[in-house]
Amino acid sequence: MSGETTPSQTVGPYFSIGLAWLNRCDLAPGASGGERVTIRGRILDGEGQPVPDACLEIWQADAHGKYAPPVNSEEKSPAHGFSGFGRVPTNDRGEFSFITIKPGSVPGPDGRPQAPHLEISVFMRGLLRRLVTRLYFPNDPANPADHVLNLVPGGRRATLIPRPLADDLHILEWDIRLQGEHETVFFEC
């Protein structure tokens, strides 16, 4: 049976009223272990205009490749205090920025390791459903064998991999393009 699911609707222009209380732009406050990175960029629409009314949600594993267990589960999170969840709005110039740690490798559907990645949902006025994308890390040796990256046409893979700043490799720049020549790869989750 399938198709009973409640349909999605857009978040509209006023979602900050209901969602901003849970904004989390530093996913790794305090000592969580792992390599800290800042990821920043802009969201651009089909005319190249920045999108000031968007929100990203991030879901990721910790530095050991473990996802935080449900709150009531008996399983203990190895990196205590790291929830793996972020909610990041764009500002008036369509820019976003968040701090996190590079996750470890998580097993894929066939049990083989995936390259380190973040799961990302994109919400905004004009999107009747969320968009889902993934962010991978530049020059990671596991990228070439990643099962998801290999589903993406070669010419488009670069849209999922941010560029490190030349003078600070811990700052990664990543623009999300909704349309156009360098349209970001989005997934049917």
Binding site: T10, L22, D45, G46, E47, Q49, V51, W59, A61, Y67, A68, P70, V71, N72, S83, G84, F85, V106, P107, G108, P109, Q114, H117, E119, M124, R125, G126, L127, L128, L131, V132, H147, V148, L151, V152, R156, L178, Q179, E183, T184, V185, F186, F187, E188, C189
Partner: peptide, 29 residues
């Protein structure tokens, strides 16, 4: 819905095989 015209992706979505990355999710206490 006019706002969808410049914001909806034009390339087909790629089906994402589900792994732990998709079958786990955040919880809030």
């Amino acid at each position: 819905y006019v706002s969808s015209i410049k914001r909806a992706p034009t390339q087909p979505l790629i089906q994402l095989p589900h792994s732990l990355s998709e079958t786990t999710g955040p919880f809030f206490s």
